[in-house]
Design a binder for these strands. Structure first.
Lengths: 202, 202
DNA sequence: GTCTATATCCAGATAGAC
DNA sequence: GTCTATCTGGATATAGAC
């Protein structure tokens, strides 16, 4: 695709403009789902937010679910980036703390994003294969980090995800904007580390 | 209210019939949210399911959110009943296992019910004070059981809810209908019990 | 790429006859 | 208590002019 750039500069400029508008629309969409929730989201309201007629959005997105799909991909890309940037300590406990902090913070930041990425509450939406592939990358990255720390047991990894998803969902459901469950991260990690030590046969 | 029964039998019969129809409608509503999800639920479809015109439903429910509210109360009453029936063992670990099993089983049985009771994904719905009071009873009951087992620390109780909600949500999200996370309950309880022992100052 | 016009359908809710 | 009729507004999506 990149080789066309040199040959057709006009098309390239048009493409860039198109992408910029698309991004602008998606940013507005994020703001809307954050304010009103993912299930109250509508194309009409989105169009209003970007000063367009609802029909014009179809130049950028084939359907409402396509917008959801781009948001889904956005969110997963963001999470993947944070994982990639994470410097993993040599000390397993401190590394586990960092991973849990990263995930729970990401979750607590944005209820709508959490709902979109990790709960399946939107009636006819499921991510496209391309977007889902990013989610798989996120999962693999998390799994790889824990394997690197010497945690190779599948059930123990599942137990780990139980902890971080439990912390995340309780924080969002019972103390949105607060830190009641975020404060439990260190204790939860200590509990987990104590439990799985010596349990591995890598 | 009960004293009116003897004086006005006709009103009472009418009342009973009214309640029966209401129940029938709610049962149909449960079936619908289970099949299509809580967010795809509509009064028109509900009316169709019970062979009524949509407008007739307003004889029984003041609004769509009132239907949600009755479902919310239903679900919490069911959970409360199960807690009340639970025979709590003297052995703390075995009691904790039973509580976790009760809750996670309840959650895994019905994704829609879990969403309605524990996630807040329906745009303009929040439970009425009367319905919410039942949810509070459920929480108190759970808390009382754990206190009875010698767990009096607030943070440890929060950690407990993190575990059971994490098990529940992961089971529903990643292995609906299966037992991948249900199988982890005993291990999770063992981990928790080991961790909180000696941590209490009741 | 954006618009007007339109198609098609669905939603929640109220008024009033029977 | 159930119906018909109706209000009001929302939704996603397509066709075609400019």
């Amino acid at each position: 695709m990149a080789k066309k750039t040199a040959i057709e500069p006009r098309r390239d400029r048009r493409h860039a403009r198109h992408q910029a508008t698309k991004r602008e629309i998606l940013d507005a969409a994020w703001q809307m789902v954050r304010v009103a929730g993912v299930n109250a989201f509508s194309l009409r309201a989105l169009a209003r937010a970007v000063n367009m007629e609802p029909q014009s959005l179809y130049t950028y997105f084939a359907s409402k679910n396509s917008v959801y799909d781009h948001l889904f991909a956005d969110g997963n890309r963001e999470l993947l980036t944070r994982f990639d940037r994470l410097e993993v300590s040599d000390d397993p406990r401190s590394a586990l703390r960092a991973v849990a902090n990263l995930f729970v913070t990401f979750a607590a930041e944005d209820q709508a994003r959490y709902e979109l990425l990790f709960l399946r509450t939107i009636p006819n939406f499921e991510p496209s294969p391309e977007s889902y592939a990013i989610a798989v990358q996120v999962f693999s990255k998390g799994r790889a980090i824990l394997t690197g720390l010497g945690l190779c047991n599948d059930a123990d990894f599942d137990l780990w995800t139980v902890l971080v998803s439990g912390l995340s969902s309780q924080q969002l459901a019972n103390d949105p904007g607060g830190d009641r469950y975020v404060k439990l991260i260190d204790d939860a990690v200590a509990m987990f580390a104590e439990h799985v030590i010596g349990n591995q046969d890598c």
